[in-house]
Amino acid sequence: MTSTPPTDLAVDARGLVKTFAAQRAVFGVDLQVRRGEVLGVLGPNGAGKTTMLSMLATLLPIDGGRASVLGVDVARDPHRVRRLLGVTGQYASVDENLTATENLRLFGRLLGLPRAQARARADELLEQFGLTDAAGRPISQFSGGMRRRLDLATSLISHPPLIFLDEPTTGLDPRTRGQMWDTVRGLVAEGCTILLTTQYLDEADQLADRVAVIDHGRKVAEGTPEQLKSSVGSSTLQVRLADAARTSEAVGLLRERAGLAPSASPESGAFSVPLTEPDGAADVLLLLRDQGLSLASAALAKPSLDEVFLALTGDRTTRTETMRTETMRTETDTSTEEVA
């Protein structure tokens, strides 16, 4: 990142501060998005993601620090910044009283397109987003997924080089989510730069080139999804015993004899062992065999982004301990709901 000259940055924010009542505040966040990249801002609800995005999109005044978008200062030149941005909010921001076509035409006109061009662009986007059949219907009859698609289409009218997507798939069913992801990938292929916030780890994993994890208004980690995963330990050994009744015996054994911190999985007879080196797996398996604990299955895996997320956004003073405890482990499977 240090080798990147500042002109290559689509977004360059340094020490962004927003002071509000407690929640949703932002305390000095640095954020750099390179041109053509997808940066995922990951964090639980109330972490300050939307606040940060709103400041960058000129929707909220910046209380401290500075930010520029494609070289234009956000605080000094808000109108220019708005010209460069397509913003799709958390809630569909289209006019309920108008039809899909009327919405797209209205926003086309507002963006300065001549009447005929606004019409043509509206038809083009309706086609592109599979909304042609619903074009004449009022938005109040649209499903959640259709609204989001129209919302995104509206953000793309002027071909903005930089797009902010604020939780683009929150509240969507899995199928519609997948479609949204495809759309985002299509935008990336066209050369758009995307800054995306999400509370879904798999979304960041799927779409983002780099991820910045935000918690309580601070950036707690940044890197590629792979880098973040390896920061939690290089791998995890998942073990299931043939005799489920002996699980606690096995866990105790590994804790005392090998100094490891295994944690039981919700699945009966299963537990996972975080390892600093993948090679450590052999020692664990040998130790189990010596005690006559026979295996049903064993698998060596990279930690999931879920584990990274919980480790990073958990209580920071005790997180190194807690992330290995059983409570954390059992929460992992429901983490997306838990943090929501």
Partner: peptide
């Protein structure tokens, strides 16, 4: 929501 968009334009 539509006013949010007006503000971002």
């Amino acid at each position: 929501g539509v006013f949010d968009r007006f503000r971002s334009l």
